[in-house]
Computed example of a mutant assay.
Amino acid sequence: MTISEGDGHPADRLQLVSDEILVERAVHGDVAAFQALVQRHGPLMRAYTSRIVGSRTEADDVVQESFIIAWRQLHALRNPGAVRAWLMRIASREALAHVRRRPSDAPLPPIDVPGSGDTRPENVAVRNAELRALSAALDRLPDDQRQCWLLREIAELSYTEIAEEMHLPPATVRGKLARARANVTAQMEGWK
């Protein structure tokens, strides 16, 4: 796709460019290209890390730190087409490090989830109760199963990407993910 200089605002034009081109431009110091990557992948990283750290505010800090790391290490990315998975791995490591830095006796912050457009009290109450039940179900999973589930269902990484992130064989990832899904499904039985 060719974009002429007269087409719209430069930031808008960058949203039409592939990740590969944005990465190549950002590696060569194009801040606007990196900003386009931030805008494209930041919301997913925030959603994923907020589930790990327990709050959107802390997730914002984790995502910001993740992008700082990414900017510094972008030249080391071997496959520019895999930038989303690479960013999610950085965010995952930073979120887990953030949780480990908490004092062991500090309570986890409550999970704050943005609301949907439906604000009828009965629907909000049901949605909040369902989210609490899902959160509780995920909290009862062993750490490795929970991480597999989050990387697959929230971060949308492939089995191979999860295996690389967790330093496990793909078959082990499949097994952990199958057990995690079975456990979550059983615990969420009442919400069908």
Results as ranks from 00 to 15, higher is better:
residue 5 E to K: 10
residue 5 E to V: 06
residue 7 D to T: 15
residue 7 D to P: 02
residue 7 D to K: 14
residue 8 G to E: 14
residue 8 G to V: 10
residue 9 H to I: 10
residue 12 D to E: 13
residue 15 Q to E: 14
residue 15 Q to K: 13
residue 17 V to N: 03
residue 23 V to R: 05
residue 24 E to Q: 15
residue 24 E to P: 03
residue 27 V to D: 00
residue 30 D to R: 06
residue 31 V to F: 07
residue 31 V to S: 09
residue 32 A to R: 13
residue 34 F to P: 02
residue 34 F to A: 03
residue 36 A to D: 05
residue 37 L to E: 03
residue 39 Q to L: 10
residue 41 H to V: 02
residue 43 P to T: 08
residue 43 P to S: 11
residue 47 A to C: 08
residue 49 T to H: 11
residue 50 S to D: 02
residue 55 S to W: 01
residue 57 T to H: 14
residue 60 D to N: 15
residue 61 D to C: 12
residue 62 V to S: 06
residue 65 E to Y: 03
residue 66 S to L: 06
residue 69 I to Y: 09
residue 74 L to T: 08
residue 74 L to V: 07
residue 76 A to M: 04
residue 80 P to D: 04
residue 81 G to I: 01
residue 81 G to K: 05
residue 83 V to S: 02
residue 84 R to V: 01
residue 84 R to K: 12
residue 85 A to Y: 05
residue 86 W to V: 06
residue 88 M to Q: 14
residue 89 R to T: 11
residue 91 A to D: 01
residue 96 L to N: 10
residue 97 A to K: 14
residue 98 H to Q: 12
residue 99 V to I: 09
residue 100 R to A: 13
residue 102 R to W: 04
residue 106 A to N: 02
residue 110 P to L: 15
residue 111 I to K: 12
residue 112 D to L: 11
residue 113 V to N: 08
residue 116 S to H: 13
residue 117 G to C: 05
residue 118 D to S: 09
residue 121 P to A: 11
residue 121 P to N: 04
residue 122 E to D: 14
residue 126 V to E: 08
residue 128 N to R: 06
residue 129 A to P: 00
residue 129 A to C: 02
residue 131 L to G: 05
residue 131 L to Y: 10
residue 135 S to E: 00
residue 135 S to A: 04
residue 136 A to G: 00
residue 137 A to Q: 00
residue 138 L to Q: 09
residue 138 L to A: 08
residue 138 L to E: 04
residue 139 D to Q: 13
residue 139 D to S: 12
residue 141 L to A: 01
residue 142 P to T: 00
residue 142 P to G: 00
residue 143 D to M: 09
residue 143 D to Y: 03
residue 143 D to F: 03
residue 148 C to S: 15
residue 150 L to H: 12
residue 151 L to N: 04
residue 153 E to D: 07
residue 154 I to A: 11
residue 155 A to H: 05
residue 157 L to F: 00
residue 158 S to R: 10
residue 160 T to C: 01
residue 163 A to D: 04
residue 165 E to I: 02
residue 167 H to D: 12
residue 167 H to Y: 04
residue 174 R to F: 02
residue 175 G to M: 07
residue 179 R to A: 05
residue 180 A to V: 02
residue 180 A to T: 01
residue 185 T to G: 00
residue 185 T to E: 01
residue 186 A to G: 00
residue 191 W to F: 11
